[in-house]
Nucleic acid binder design. Structure first.
Lengths: 200, 200, 200, 200
DNA sequence: GATGAATGAGGCTTCATTCAT
DNA sequence: TATGAATGAAGCCTCATTCAT
């Protein structure tokens, strides 16, 4: 009885996790639906009971992972008051996730951004929500006199995200990941932006 | 006469320019070789007299555009001595190019990254050369005492490029391009990184 | 039930038989995969569930038909002791098959040789096995004193096969098949080789 | 003046000889017209001043080589009276040519026979003329009482040709040509057919 | 005659998706 | 729900041939 919904969720998760791995390994276009099915231990057709199509799998992964990310971020920032500290926490949290869920990170960063459809049609609301947290930090810092008022929070937000993201991508793409440490990168990026924002 | 080599180069350029537009409009995967041929006003097969295959067109665009970029960057930075000024010039130059060659920028930023992972074999030397100019600016600024020595030029370089790139992409993707000005973005990003680098 | 494997085999046979007809009619190069699919009553893609590619269809036909031929030959020669009689049986059996499975014979004789790849890379083991039966007859005839020992079984084998094959091809190519009778041809070829082999 | 026709013939021969080599090496279908042009040292288009199309090159090679063959055969048989001797001479001459003009032989035997169009539409008159010489030998032998009258010269002719041809093909296909000697094969095939024809 | 750049028809194969069981 | 055999649209590329020079 109560097992059925659980099983259903299980199978959906099974497919999602398999898809993350396959997408990370081969890339979205190269990944075949049957690859995902095989890795998930289900039939090809079964996938279409849980997802509309191949792209829907990718977008679902995005939504689900972003939900987790948003929850975690809220916890991470909870109780931290100083805007500069909040920025440092944001950067560290971001890279913590990249390190912990490397396959998912690879899919999100490499695949999702590269989906032309994603970039041109899909509205990544969850991503904006995530980044919006940063923009809010900036705005509050400005309101409270910590940050210069002549910085456009919107521009700073995309710049900050771009910096984090590019470094994450380079880290992910480098086979050995020893060219630099994510922790160092997080601190340096956070520090640069904090210095760049600070009211003198 | 001397017209023949010119005509030959013309045809290649014709195809390249057509490809830039088609790739920018539809994306690499969605672009059909026959779309490019039609827009260039040549037969499908003619393309294969100048390019090995569809992917070769994309990579050729990358190489050619990066060459132009590298030359232009050298001119832009020529005679500018102060590291902070050089960083400002770099950012402005980058966005000047994005604004002037919007289609090419779109292809470079959106499509080429498609290859990043999938064309695992391709080494974007020209991109590294371009970014290397920035890393050198940082390193020289450190040597001359302008910049803090505890910043990793490599990390700063990728962060700076990511910030510029993300903002360029957002500008390119926003249909009306009036959410923010590229010039403002260039100055703010440059300023943030300069402040973040400056020795106190 | 037990129907499923049968149905699967059926579909493969359906494709094979359709391919035999199409190859015989148009030749391997001219035959389009979609022709075969249409004649078999399946979709183009279905063919690729059973065969690796177009060439694989041709080679599979070869393998399958040769298996049938080898089995039939064993039955035909069973209990026949005299080497000369065995040679006669061999020739008659060969032409029996050509007459009964004209399309298949046409494919085997005309098309298979067409494939340069086939001739230069594919090792037609089954054909050698088939011809090896003849070489063995010759060798045994020599051992038992029926045949001259100065004939090279290998040379005689290829000569015999060439003679049979050329006559079969001429018969197949002649539209009405009334220029000569396969039976007469079989007997004359067999008789010539027997006389040519006999110890005096 | 008289140089022009010579040059013209030269260029045509240049192309023919290049084609023989390319066809022998790659096979007719795999051979590209530009390969032939390159090897002949002419432009692609030039070939079409001398030949109607690619197939015309192949057929021209066939016609030309067969003319040479027919002339040589006449010389070889000149003054040889005994039918059995004439058959021996025929076989030896045939293999002499195969050995001497291996590339041409490969083209004639492998490619020409394999052209579906050739086999089904082209009437190889010259080949029939060549084989007709053999049929005439048989018929004369029968008339003069040397050969059994119950052999069908037509059937024997194709059988003899098939035997010779198959052995030649095996010799041509075997890389090192040391599995058997063409001379031995010629004698054995001739001897077998002579024995098989002889009136007792 | 000679060139060779340009043409463009043509086909094998893949793989996301469906649907009868 | 689950299956997986079947579908069939879609597109890159080759290369024989042409024709303006």
């Amino acid at each position: 009885m109560s097992e059925l919904p659980a099983k259903k969720a299980d199978k959906r998760n099974l497919i999602t996790e398999a898809a993350v791995e396959v997408f990370a390994e081969k890339g979205f276009r190269q990944a075949r639906v049957s690859d995902i099915a095989r890795k998930a231990g289900v039939a090809d057709g079964t996938i279409y009971l849980y997802f509309k199509n191949k792209e829907d799998i990718l977008l679902s992964i995005f939504e689900e992972k972003m939900d987790i990310l948003l929850e975690g971020l809220a916890v991470e920032l909870d109780g931290v008051d100083d805007p500069a500290d909040r920025i440092r926490r944001f950067a560290r949290f971001h890279y913590q996730q990249v390190r912990t869920n490397r396959a998912a990170a690879e899919v999100l960063q490499v695949e999702l951004r590269l989906s032309h459809k994603f970039l041109k049609e899909y509205r990544p609301e969850k991503l904006w929500e995530y980044l919006g947290v940063f923009a809010t930090i900036v705005r509050e810092g400005q309101d409270r006199g910590h940050f210069r008022k002549d910085r456009d929070p919107f521009v700073v937000m995309w710049g900050f995200f771009g910096a984090l993201d590019e470094l994450a991508m380079q880290w992910v793409l480098s086979k050995k990941n020893d060219r630099f440490s994510l922790e160092v990168a997080a601190d340096q990026v956070a520090d640069i932006f904090i210095k760049g924002l600070e009211a003198t």
